[in-house]
Amino acid sequence: MRIRTVRARFTALYGVVFFLSGAVLLAIAGGVALSPTRVSTVAPGPEPAPAGSALTQAQTQIAWLQRQLTEQQAANTRQLLAGAAIALAVMAVVSIVLGRVIAGHVLRPLRTITAATRRITADNLHERLAVPGPADEVKDLADTIDELLERLEDSFAAQRRFVADASHELRTPLTTMRAALDVAMAKPEPAPPRTVVLADRLRTELDEIDRLLEGLLALARAQHGELPDRTTVSLAGLVSESVAARAPDIAARGLTVHEALGGDLPVRGSRALLGRMVENIIDNAIRHNHDRGWIRVATADDGGTGHLVVETGGEILDPRQVAGLARPFRRLGADRTGTGDGTGLGLSIVAAVATAHGGALDLRARPDGGLRVAVSLPLAVAVPA
Rank of each mutant, 00 (worst) to 15 (best):
Q61A: 06
A63W: 01
Q68A: 13
N76C: 07
Q68L: 13
L65K: 04
W64M: 01
L69M: 08
A82G: 14
I86A: 04
A85Q: 08
L65F: 15
L88N: 00
I86Y: 01
I86D: 04
T60A: 07
A85I: 12
W64A: 00
A63L: 06
Q73S: 13
A85E: 07
N76H: 14
T77D: 13
W64V: 00
R78S: 09
L69A: 15
A82Q: 10
A63H: 03
Q61C: 04
A89V: 15
A85R: 01
R78D: 06
A75M: 06
Q68I: 11
Q72G: 09
T60W: 10
W64L: 03
Q73D: 12
L65G: 10
A82C: 10
L80Y: 14
Q73W: 11
A75T: 06
T60L: 07
Q61V: 12
L69R: 09
Q72V: 15
L69I: 06
L88P: 05
T60K: 06
Q61H: 09
V90R: 09
G83N: 06
N76F: 13
A89S: 13
Q68K: 06
Q72E: 06
L88Q: 02
A74T: 08
A89N: 04
A89D: 09
L65R: 05
Q79V: 07
E71K: 03
I86M: 03
A84M: 10
A87Q: 06
T60F: 12
I62G: 01
L80P: 08
Q73C: 04
A74Q: 13
T77L: 06
A74I: 11
Q66T: 00
R78L: 13
I62H: 03
A87R: 09
E71S: 09
Q66C: 04
L88V: 01
L80E: 07
A85L: 13
I86K: 01
T70K: 03
A75K: 08
L80D: 08
L88R: 00
I62V: 11
